[in-house]
Simulated scan of single mutants.
Amino acid sequence: MDAVSKVYGKGSGAVAALREVSVGIPQGTFAAVMGPSGSGKSTFLHCAAGLDVPTSGSVRLGGTELSGMDETALTALRRRQVGFVFQSFNLVSSLTVLENITLPLLLAGARVDRAWLAEIVRRVGLEGRTGHRPAQLSGGQQQRVALARALVTRPQVVFGDEPTGALDTMTARDVLVLLREIVSGLGQTVVMVTHDPVAASYADTVLYLADGQIVDSMAAPTADKIAERMTRLGAWK
Rank of each mutant, 00 (worst) to 15 (best):
N100G: 01
V97F: 12
R60P: 05
S56G: 12
F86G: 11
V97H: 09
N100I: 00
V121E: 06
N90T: 01
S138W: 03
R80E: 11
G35D: 08
L137P: 04
R111C: 00
V124N: 13
V53Y: 11
L126C: 13
T72F: 04
G139H: 05
S56K: 13
R78S: 02
V112C: 06
G28E: 02
V97Y: 09
A135I: 08
M34L: 04
V82Y: 11
H46R: 08
G28P: 03
R129K: 13
A118H: 12
A110I: 01
A115D: 14
G109M: 03
R122F: 07
Q141T: 10
V23H: 14
G63D: 15
T75Y: 07
W116P: 09
S42W: 06
S56L: 04
S93P: 12
G57F: 11
V85D: 14
L106T: 12
S67E: 05
T102E: 06
F84N: 02
E119C: 12
P36E: 00
N90G: 01
F89W: 11
V145S: 07
D70G: 03
A76M: 10
Q143T: 00
R133D: 01
P54L: 14
L126P: 12
P54V: 11
S42N: 04
V92Y: 05
R60I: 04
M69S: 08
W116Y: 15
A135R: 13
G131K: 15
N100R: 00
G139I: 11
S39C: 03
H132M: 08
S22W: 13
R123N: 03
V121M: 06
R78P: 03
V92L: 14
L18Y: 08
V112W: 04
S88Q: 15
R129W: 09
S94W: 07
L74N: 08
R60N: 10
T55L: 14
V124K: 13
L103G: 01
V59A: 05
L66S: 00
L51N: 06
G139R: 04
A49N: 11
G38M: 08
R133I: 00
D113E: 03
